[in-house]
Design a protein around this nucleic acid. Structure first.
Lengths: 123, 123
DNA sequence: CGGTATCCCTAAGGATACTG
DNA sequence: CAGTATCCTTAGGGATACCG
């Protein structure tokens, strides 16, 4: 039900990338590439994310094996998230992507303005 | 309202990548990298996409300047989509990403199984 | 052919309150 | 501290019908 009726070559890849490159993953991964972080450290580092979404993102990333969750049984408990070796291999693809985005941002902004102007003009 | 209160470095990039790497974009871009296509050719090439979603995807990609829409005024009209030079530069980042996905798919599937087993075991 | 318009429905996301 | 649990809203997607 994912392998059977998905005729596309890229479908499983797409699904994987959705898991790993979703809305908050880039930010989380970026933080964790720098240093291991606790839950609330991450919240502070990424102020726009809500608890719920951050939790969901961390679970998803953990499930896919790109980050690790370590529970330090103090009182109150401390939880430490860190990137895994697999997670580190994601760095390069992400950097390539971000580099593309940076380099082409101006061109794309122009393209958008032009498009919107044409739209407004009734095409 | 996108540059002002988005404290994040990557926020505009994220938004850009959302536009360009969304659910159907990879498939469309892949097709158009091969050859210019008409609307219904694309539908046939990507059977799972609905008209509505395909139209939306094409508009979005066009707006961002990675594809072009050419209307041939015959009767009935023909519309031809093709990749732009900017669009072609997206090829490399996408390939890097897909390569990462292919290479690590087995590892990730293992990670998922392990995670799910731990979950089921009550952790 | 290449769409637009409409309705519907579900799944993701935010806000808020509470807990071991 | 590090989350669950609950409620609510809204954006995205499918299905269907129609149009130049």
């Amino acid at each position: 039900m994912d392998t059977a009726d998905d005729v596309h070559i890229e479908a499983p890849h797409r699904e994987l990338l959705d898991q790993v490159l979703d809305k908050w993953s880039l930010s989380v991964l970026n933080e964790l590439c720098e240093r291991a972080c606790r839950f609330n450290e991450l919240r502070r580092a990424i102020p726009q994310v809500t608890q719920k979404s951050l939790t969901a993102t961390l679970r998803r990333l953990e499930r896919n094996g790109v980050i690790e969750r370590e529970v330090v049984s103090t009182r109150p408990v401390a939880v430490r998230y860190r990137i895994t070796p697999l997670g580190k291999t994601l760095r390069y693809p992400i950097d390539v992507l971000l580099a593309w985005a940076s380099q082409n941002m101006p061109v794309i902004e122009r393209a958008r303005e032009d498009f919107d102007d044409r739209e407004e003009a009734g095409r």
